[in-house]
Amino acid sequence: MSTPPSAPTASAGGLTLAELPTVVAALCDRVGLDPTGAQLIKFTNNAALRLATAPVVVRIAGSRAARASITTVVQVARWLTGQDMPAVRLLSGIDQPVEAAGHVATFWEEVPVTGPAPTGADLGRILRRFHALPEPDFALPDWAPFPRIRARIADAQGISARDQEWLLEQCAAVEAEVRSLDYVLEAGLIHGDPFLGNLIPGPDGPVLCDFDGVSWGPREWDLTPVAVGRLRMNYPEDHHTPLADAYGYDVTAWVGFPVFRRLRELVLVTSVLPQLAGNPGIRAQWEPRYASFRAGDTRTRWDTYH
């Protein structure tokens, strides 16, 4: 297995980089695939690897939240295939999820990254189509971001107890504000984390991926990540305006948007807490995020994690 030189070596919710070759080998052996030369794509809350011997991506749950949602991920992926959505497809012919070496994973058909870079308009159209799907024939979890946030704070590495306490206080405060919100859009199926990074530029157009957060909840939440990206992230262009035009609704005009912005920024600050001690690069990007978030500074731009 080949890995980038700067890859983290510490645990990501129970999975470590050092054990990845053994885990991948065991998982591939379980389904009859060859792990030789597997390349690490990403290692945060999940570890995603591209096999060199077959057009397959292995996605290993690397956090408690990812492991808890993997059954729903499989159900959603199979259902989306039946709905003919432009979404990544599970590898057929094997029972999923797959368990081996104390870990659980899913296997996916690799999407060739050969198309043009996705745009905000692409995501707006896909989200509009996603939200128009009929209710699935299986039970979706209710939208519940706060237990995930608290779990990541509990698993934090390399921050003080005082910082953990402050983040938990913020989580409680935002949760109370969310409970009091009045929504404009009808609740229903939501992706949970739709931003441009979760669109793969396939040969036939953008393909949606990452179903860990799929649930039943407020549609306003699915329109929040890109809106917050325009206001907070150090992106070279505005993807929110074309997304809002394509979707038909501008979430920033909603009276509850400042609360959802704060929640989204809390998610972005806490998402990598379990990896801070083992990845100096992530920590260097996280520290200015946390400092501005804690200071109530809404103007400082954040770099993406990489």
Rank of each mutant, 00 (worst) to 15 (best):
V24W: 06
F211M: 12
A61P: 07
G14N: 09
A154T: 15
I70R: 09
P258Y: 05
L133N: 06
Y305P: 05
I149L: 10
G188E: 01
G188I: 04
D34M: 01
A144E: 10
F130I: 06
H306I: 13
A227W: 01
L51N: 02
G62E: 03
D137W: 05
P112A: 15
V56N: 02
P145Y: 01
E165L: 13
R128C: 15
T224H: 01
L27H: 00
Y235S: 14
A295V: 03
D142K: 15
V76P: 05
Y247D: 07
T304G: 14
A61D: 06
V104G: 00
D297R: 06
G37R: 03
V56L: 04
I126A: 01
I200N: 06
P141G: 04
A10S: 03
T252E: 02
F146E: 02
T53A: 01
P288F: 03
G115D: 09
L49K: 08
L208W: 06
I70T: 15
A244T: 03
G202K: 11
A12I: 10
G115W: 06
V228K: 06
Q164V: 02
A295L: 02
S69Y: 02
D34S: 00
T119A: 12
W216F: 15
I94N: 05
V88C: 10
V24Q: 04
W302L: 09
V226K: 08
Q96N: 08
G37I: 12
N46W: 03
A48I: 04
V76C: 05
L223Q: 05
A25F: 04
L15Q: 04
P203T: 14
V88N: 03
R67G: 10
R283A: 11
T81D: 15
E237G: 14
L276W: 09
D238L: 09
S69M: 14
Q275H: 15
R262F: 11
A101I: 06
L40G: 01
T71N: 13
M85I: 08
P118C: 09
L133C: 04
